[in-house]
């Protein structure tokens, strides 16, 4: 049961949250301008590091806000969380 620090609500149990995968994958401004390969990149290709990973979480059973987190996937440890209007946390911050 991870303890996740929602930037709005504070630390809460993992069961209140939904996982949202890698952060910073923006919907392309011009999907039509993308090749099938580039579109597939957007749809499916994701970083999957062993170590710090910038990811998204959704406080589904709380404030219902999405937020960003930097978490070490090797230790499961949260290094930082941030609101969506704050800079994406990076390793080392």
């Amino acid at each position: 049961m991870l303890l996740i620090r929602c930037p709005w609500c504070g630390p809460r149990d993992e069961v209140e949250f939904r996982y949202g995968g890698q952060a910073g994958i923006a919907y392309p401004a011009d999907p039509d301008g993308l090749s099938d390969e580039a579109w597939a990149d957007y749809l499916f290709m994701r970083d999957n590091p062993k170590g710090p990973f910038a990811e998204r979480w959704f406080h589904a059973a709380g404030c219902r806000r999405w937020f960003h987190a930097l978490r070490d996937t090797a230790t499961h440890r949260f290094l930082a969380t941030a609101r969506l209007d704050e800079p994406l946390p990076e390793a080392g911050t």
């Binding site: 991870l2 939904r18 996982y19 999957n48 990811e55 978490r71 996937t73 090797a74 499961h76």
Partner: peptide
Amino acid sequence: AYNGYGQR
């Protein structure tokens, strides 16, 4: 649900 290499 989350990505993890921790084998737990």
